[in-house]
Every structure is written in C-alpha cells, then in structure tokens.
Design a protein around this nucleic acid. Structure first.
Length: 910
RNA sequence: GGGCGGUUAGCUCAGUUGGUCAGAGCGCCUCGCUUACACCGAGGAUGUCGGAGGUUCGAGUCCUCCACCGCCCACCA
C-alpha cells in the first residue's frame, strides 16, 4: 500500500470523493474492453454480453437509467471477474420522434419551426443539437460506474448503423417481409407523422354520442324520402362527410327490410348502401352505424369486407379537405360544431347524450390521433413473430421474471403489421426510390439504385421516399448492427447472440419484440439468451416519475451527496425483478451508511496490523493450525457468503445479493468478527504467529467481501481493496481480480462461535432488562456443554470484554453453576448450550425482580412453543407422512425446548 | 372485455421449490461519546402475512371465490 493510500484511509469516509480518480484508473488500465490491454478475459470461457438499451441522445440521466446501468454493470462486472470475455457495449439512440419533439420545442421558443427551416437546415440544426447533448448522458453513465467498453460506442445514426438499416430493409423487402401499401394508419396531427399502434395511448374521456337521421332513397325515384329515415349513432359527426355506407346487424329485425336500400349522406349528397354486417352490435346506440372507412379502424375493416369507397376527408393537420363542402378548411372539431348545427337546422339531429369512451392520444404530443388512409411501408410481422415465439417457447430465449412470458405470448400472437414509415426528418431515410410510374425500387446503396428495377428508368428519374424509419427499426437491429453486421466481423462471431438483455418492462413490445424478430430473421439467430426485465422507479408516493409531473429525482445530485456506490446499492437493495420500487432518500442514506461502515472496518483492519507484519507484506494464507475458533468462524462465514451470493447471482436475485452482503459484512464480520479479533489481536498470551494468523484471517475475509461487493459498489471496493495486502498473483485493480472461489466451511467453528455469540447476546439482554449498570464489569459464572469448552477458553478474553464480564468463572457442571454463592441474587441467562449467572453489584436492588419477570416471560414463551411442538409430534399423521428429516428436526426442537423449559423452571425455583 | 401484478410491523419493502419465515431498512423507545465507524454501538416494542373457503400431517408460501389499488392488452360506433 502506498503512503498516499494510507493517508486516504486515515480519513473519514467522504462519499464519492475518490470515484472520479478510480474511474480514470480503470480507463487508463483499459480493463473494460474484453480484448483491452488490461483485460482479464480468458477466451477459453464463453463470452458474456450485456445488451443495454441505448439512451436517447438528447436525454439526461434519470433514476431509471441509473438503475438500468447498475443492474447491467453488476452483471458485467461479475462476469468479468469470472474471467469471461465481457462486453458491455455503450450506445446512443437518435430517438427520432422524441428528439424532434425536443428540438421543435426549442425552435418554437426561437420563433422558428420545421416549416420555416426546411428539411436540410432542420437536420443541420438537429446534428448540432445532438452534438451538444450526446456527451451528457454518456458522462452520467460513467458517474454511475458503468464499465462500458467505450471504444465500441455506437450511435443508431452512425454509418455502421445506417448501413445495417439499409441492408436489413432490402433483405426484408426481397423476402416479402417489407411491403408498401395504402392502409389505415395512426396519424398524429400535432407531430405530422404516422405513429405505431404502441404510441397511441388509449385515454378515457367523456364524450357525446349523437343520433343522426339519414334519409333513405325512394327505390323507384332515387330521391330522398323525407319520411323514411334510419338513425345512426356517432361520436364523430364530422366524419359524416366520409361515410360510404350504413351498417346494421344481419339478424336485426328492425332493419332487415332496409338492407340493400340506399341512403343519402348529408352535405356531400353521396348515396350509399345500407349493408348488413355482424360487426354491428344491435344493442348499442340505435343498432345502425355509419361507416367511414378512411377514418375509423372498425369501419375500415367493414369497408374492405364490402368493397366500399374510402374517401379521405382530413388533411395532415386534421382539417376537413376535399369534400367539396363549405366545411373544407375547418379544423376537425370546428367542423364537428358546424355540422351539428347544420344537422339540427335540417331537423336531422335526433338526440345526444354523454358517452364514456376511450380515445387514442399521441404518446408524444397528446394530440388525438386520427386514423387515416396512407401509403406507407410495413413490416410483415406474422412470420417474424412466429419465429420469436418459437424462441421463447423452446427456451432458447428466457424472459425474466417468468410471468412476462405470458404477456409476451399474448402480444406476439396478436401482433399486427408494423408501420415503419414516419413523416419526420430526423432518422434513417427509407431506402426506396420511385419512378414516375410509381414503381418502387429498394436499394442498400446510399446513392440509390442505378435504375428502376421494374421499368428500367435511370436513377436520374427516380426519387427517394421522403419518409424515414420508425426509430425502433434501427433500435431493433441494435444487438447485431453494433457488431458490424452485415459483415461477418470478429465481434459478430464472438458476441452474437448476447447473453442478457436488460431493460424496463415498459419497452418490451417497442424494443425487445423488434430485436427478437429482426435478430432471428436477419442475423440468423436469437439476439440474446435472457431478457431481464427491471421494474420501474417511482416516486415515494408510487407515481411514475416524469418531468412534466416534476417529481423526478436527479441521480447526479444523489451521487454528489451519497456517492455512486450508495445510489447503486439503494437501487438494487430490497427489489425484485419486474416489480416497481418507490424511491426515497432514506434508502440511499442507509446504503451510504453501509459504505461508511465498510470503509471504517477496512480502516480498522489495516490499523490493527500486528507490528510483526510489514506494511508492504505480500498476502499470506493464514496457517490453519494457528487459527482459533473465531478466526475460523470469520473465514467460514465468508465462504458461506460466497456460496450464497453465487446462488443469488445465478438466479438474477440482485436484491438478495445486496441483502446477503449487507448482513454478512455488517452483522457478522463487523459486529462479531472484528470485535472478537480486537481482543485476540491484543492478547499477549497468544504467540505472535497466532496473532498474525488472526489478522491474516481478517484480511482474507475482507478481501473476499470486497470482491463479492465489487459489482454492486465498484468505486468503494476498488478504493479499499487497493490498500489491502495482495497476493503476488493479484492484478493491480480489483475490477479485473478474480471472483472468489467457494471456500470450505468449518461447521465446528460456526457452531461454537454461534453458541458463544448467543451467550453474549443473552447476557447483554439480561443485563439490559435488569437495568443493571450498563458499563459495570460484573462477575459471570458460566456453564457450557463440554464440546464448547475449548472454544470458550479460547475466546474467554473476548467474551469477557463483549459481555463486560469480570471475572468470568467457568463451571464444569450445571449443578456447580447453580450451586455458586449468589446464584439466587444474580441474573439468569439461558442460551442454548450455555447457561450463566450474572453477579450483581450494589445499586441493583431492583434487578432480581426485573430478572424474574424476564424469566417468567421467557418461560411462558418457551412453554407455548413446546406445547406447539409437542402437539405437532403427537399428530400421528405428521410422523407418518412428513419427511424423516423434518420429523427429526421437530424432535430435536422439542427436546431443546423441553430442556429450556426445565432450566427456566429450575431457575425460577419451580 | 381479457390478462398481470400488489395487498406482510407506523412507512418502504424482502420472503427462490409449502416444514424454526414471521424478517430487513427507516421511524419509534431505553441505554452508551468502550482507542474502525454517532453515517456508530447495546437492548427493546410493534404484524390473527387483505377477506372467506379449500388442498395438506403442515400454507404469507398451492387452489377457488371476493374486496380494494395499480399496470398491460383490447375495433363497440
């Protein structure tokens, strides 16, 4: 250990103080790249690859990111310490619509807009904006401690990605998996683009349902019959202008005679048929529905079934257009008002009533989404989804937690074709070119095809599709586009498929589903073996955090105050995959305290180094023969923790990992390990070699705990590990040190020390209850069962100190203990295999009474438990049906309780 | 209309395959500035594990139903 490091440790723990320096050391050592100079990767082992959702290039870190990064980083660091080539590839998403939304907001404040700038200047502006913001989120990820391979940083708009996008689309097109068609899409009038089904948020609203009379035509004259009408119910009167039929249910007797007749649509004076279709619910409204195929999903289906015309009556801004009526140019809602007034004037408005309905709003702008006919590019999802489903059903890809497989299954089975065209500017331009005759040619060449592949017209006559791809199209290629696909690069061979893809459950469909479908289809294999879904971070009231709500917590502020390690620990502690967590400052404080505890424990261990060991001594494995029970206990508990942590990690139970380490470090190592060692290190009766062994045991266990904790609290553990004596084979940095192997347990030591710890606890307990002078040294008479004798002697000084017992007298039989003078006036302690009497000093007159009350209480409890245990054993069915081990356990428990009851009764003089 | 999750100490949450599982942190109460740590130490109190049935020798832990809370999916005008 260097002088500087020693000085560092002499100080109190200041959260985060050393984090930057540590991160710089990692970078300098080039340990994050699996093939970096400082890499510990053993290429004989299978690589481990984390797929990270690339954050938006315009974004800044929120707690969700921090949690994401923590979990991903935890896994990658663990894998790295196992020696596996570990790839954690960082990236950024261009976030097409989200980025445009942000930039449009900025432009609006400057009095500019997409329209005033035009496409080229807008994109220039966007590139400049993105150049400004891109480092923000990356820097923030570093502050959280993400051990990403920065040399492999990718952006969904970089050339590698662009090439993959073009190539993918071409391949899909060639296989008939991408097609261009006029179909009803979701149009956001605010964003002026189509959006996917997923981006339409069904929003409950109280609207109005109007009843409108349509006039039937006289079959003979073809003129409207003022007396014969059919009343339809609608929530959208403005779409009357686009009606091309009225539908009723085929079995509806009320309307049976009208089917086949024609009605005149008001204002546009279009004559349309009355049709029969089972989609109509006779019980709803009037049982007759107006059909607007170009502006309603149901109606569109109906229109297709019946071969109806589909006039579009709204433009990009959702204004009425091309109807040849006076409503042209009016906004859809203005038109609604006008039409209602006109209908009323005609006497054709038959009534209205409030109506609870669900309306689709744009996820981004909150505008009411308008279903609209448009010619767009679609990805045919059915075959892709089938393959994705096969992957999860066969278990080649596992979704965690399991319950999400059901959701996955349901969504994938009912998936609709994916509209990938967006009428935006920031994104990958669709690589399709059209000739004047309307033939489409798809090409992976940036410059486009040399000629129309249908009619051979030269490229000069071709025009590229102005639209861009849905941002999730390029994200969907992420697991392989980032590795250089379509080239068969080394990276692609080594790192595809990935191991674990981690993300929040809220983007399973947006992203995970697309990666699965496109990965299997284009890269020829599943993109990852495991999908780990995290829960969402909520505010202390359980509300989703959002900027508009103003309840976001700035993770950087947390890191500044409490340290990245504490934040990471808090984000994982007490959580389970897929379950949301409420997040408050108390958790981080607790984690900070834990960090502080570990810091001070390390400080103590270093300071307790026996003078016979040099400050720069190379690590020694303590000689087993020199170790006492406490030392062996410390080592055995560390070994037990390794095994438990390994199990939890294998189960992706990261909350459990944090719990195990918190408990092992704080409640075992610090509370008892160090306390016992303090006395033993100072015990002059022990040889120098023995004391050295005790110290080495402390170092050994601490080293193990630091390694186990490193994936969760990387900065702190790196800092502390740096000052511990190392073995010659250890690397310079913990980040690339080896994960601990599972050591041997020492059952004897665990049992012995466990029993003595119980004894000390019981003595403290008795003393506290009896309100005896807390600080006084009181005589303690002890009886322990013979097999604990040696351990008691070995730990005698420690027990004396921890129980504040002086003198400590050991009795070889229980009778001898009970027979001591002063037994009656002392406090009785019964702790499993040990029993003791605490002698009382003057000033404790009230103690015997308090002690008696405590014993009575203990007795009552023991009797209750004994009774329950006996009742269980008395049940013949239990003995007959329960596994022998359980029955045996119950018998042992009964015997133990019976013994305890006997002893308590004896002490109470019964 | 389907589906999923939650309902465990005052608060926030753990409880992997049913058998010392009734826990943790925070908060609260009583002590203690003992030479790693007051970001600490010692001790303590608090729950019929949402309700009702059922399966089982045995159920927070499995099944059924119900009640709230939340989420996802869904073309009723």
């Amino acid at each position: 250990m260097t002088t500087q490091q020693t000085e560092e440790l002499a100080k109190a723990y200041v959260p985060g103080e050393f984090e930057h320096a540590i991160y710089e050391r990692w970078l300098a050592a080039d340990v994050f790249a699996p093939d970096g100079a400082g890499s510990a990767a053993d290429w004989a082992l299978p690589p481990f690859v984390i797929i990270q959702p690339p954050p938006n290039v315009t974004g800044s870190l929120h707690l969700g990111h921090a949690q994401r990064t923590t979990v991903e980083d935890l896994m990658i660091r663990h894998a790295r310490m196992l020696g596996r080539p570990a790839l954690y590839l960082p990236g950024l998403d261009h976030a097409s619509i989200a980025a445009q939304f942000v930039l449009d907001g900025i432009l609006a404040r400057e009095g500019e807009s997409r329209a005033t700038l035009g496409r080229e200047r807008y994109l220039e502006r966007m590139r400049a904006f993105v150049a400004e913001t891109r480092e923000v989120i990356l820097t923030q990820q570093r502050r959280v401690g993400g051990s990403c391979d920065w040399g492999r940083l990718r952006f969904t708009m970089d050339e590698v990605s662009a090439r993959a996008v073009r190539e993918s689309f071409l391949r899909l097109y060639r296989k008939g998996l991408a097609y261009r068609a006029e179909a009803l899409i979701n149009w956001c009038p605010g964003c002026r683009t189509s959006v996917s089904d997923l981006e339409v948020i069904p929003t409950p609203e109280t609207g109005t349902i109007w009843r409108v009379r349509y006039h039937l035509l006289d079959p003979s004259t073809g003129a409207p019959d003022p007396a014969a009408t059919i009343t339809v119910a609608t929530t959208r009167p403005e779409t009357i202008l686009g009606d091309t039929a009225v539908a009723v249910h085929p079995d509806d007797d009320r309307y049976a005679s009208l089917v086949g007749r024609r009605v005149r649509i008001p204002f546009v004076d279009r004559d349309v048929p009355v049709i029969a279709d089972p989609v109509v619910d006779p019980a709803f409204g009037t049982g007759a529905v107006k059909i607007t195929p170009a502006h309603d999903h149901d109606d569109n289906d109906t229109g297709r079934r019946h071969g109806l015309a589909m006039p579009t009556i709204l433009d990009d801004a959702a204004r009425v257009a091309n109807t040849g009526t006076a409503y042209d140019g009016l906004d859809r809602y203005e038109a609604r008002t006008a039409i209602l007034a006109d209908l009323a004037a005609r006497g054709d408005l038959a009534g209205e009533q409030p109506h609870e309905m669900v309306i689709g709003r744009c996820q981004r702008s909150d505008d009411v989404v308008e279903p609209r006919l448009k010619t767009q590019w679609f990805v045919r999802t059915a075959p892709l989804a089938e393959a994705a489903l096969e992957a999860t059903r066969s278990g080649r890809t596992t979704i965690l937690p399991e319950r999400f497989e059901k959701v996955w299954e349901h969504w994938m089975t009912n998936i609709r074709d994916w509209n990938v065209s967006r009428q935006l500017w920031w994104g990958h331009r669709i690589p399709a070119w059209y000739c004047p005759d309307g033939h489409a040619t798809v090409s992976a060449e940036p410059a486009g095809p040399p000629a129309c592949e249908t009619c051979g017209r030269p490229s000069a006559d071709l025009e590229q599709d102005p639209d861009i791809f849905d941002t999730w199209f390029s994200s969907g290629l992420w697991p392989f586009s980032t590795l250089g696909w379509p080239d068969r690069t080394d990276d692609l061979r080594r790192f595809y498929p990935g191991s674990v893809m981690e993300t929040g459950y809220d983007i399973v469909f947006f992203w995970v589903a697309r990666m699965m479908m496109l990965g299997i289809e284009l890269a020829g294999d599943i993109p990852f073996h495991t999908v780990y879904l995290s829960g969402l971070i909520r505010d202390p009231y359980g509300k989703k955090m959002s900027k508009t709500r103003g309840n976001t917590v700035d993770p950087l502020g947390m890191i500044d105050g409490m340290g990245a390690d504490a934040l990471r620990f808090a984000l994982v502690h007490g959580t389970t995959p897929g379950n949301d967590q409420r997040f408050g400052g108390a958790k981080v404080e607790n984690a900070r305290n834990f960090a502080n505890k570990l810091w001070n424990a390390t400080r103590f261990v270093l300071g307790a180094r026996p003078p016979t060991i040099a400050g720069d001594a190379v690590r020694e494995t303590p000689d087993a023969a020199l170790l006492g029970p406490a030392d062996r206990w410390v080592l055995s508990r560390a070994a037990g923790t390794v095994a438990a942590v390994d199990r939890a990690l294998a189960d992706y139970a990261f909350g459990e990992v944090s719990r195990l380490l918190y408990e092992a470090i704080w409640n075992e190592y610090c509370d008892w390990g160090l306390e016992l060692a303090k006395v033993r290190l100072a015990d002059e009766r022990r040889s120098a070699a023995e004391r050295e062994a005790t110290w080495w045991a402390l170092v050994e266990a601490l080293d193990t705990y630091l390694r186990l904790l490193h994936p969760l609290m990387p900065f702190l553990t790196e800092q502390l590990w740096g000052v511990l004596p190392h073995r010659a084979t250890d690397p310079a940095l913990l980040v690339v040190a080896r994960w601990p192997g599972v050591g041997e347990r020492d059952e004897t030591a665990e049992a012995e020390v466990g029993a003595l710890v119980e004894l000390v606890r019981a003595v403290r307990n008795a003393r506290a209850d009896a309100t005896a002078e807390p600080r006084a040294w009181l005589p303690l008479d002890v009886y322990v069962e013979p097999e604990l004798g040696d351990a008691l002697e070995a730990l005698r000084p420690a027990i004396e100190r921890l129980a504040r017992a002086r003198p400590l007298r050991r009795h070889v039989t229980r009778e001898a203990l009970h027979g001591i003078a002063g037994a009656a006036g002392g406090l009785s302690v019964i702790a499993g295999a040990a029993e003791a009497i605490v002698g009382l000093g003057a000033g404790d007159e009230g103690a015997p009474a308090a002690d008696r009350a405590r014993l009575e209480k203990e007795l009552a409890e023991a009797e209750r438990l004994l009774e329950a245990a006996r009742a269980r054993l008395a049940n013949e069915a239990f003995a007959a049906k329960a596994p022998p081990a359980v029955v045996e356990g119950a018998r042992a428990r009964e015997a133990e309780l019976a013994d305890q009851v006997d002893r308590l009764r004896a002490r109470l003089g019964r």
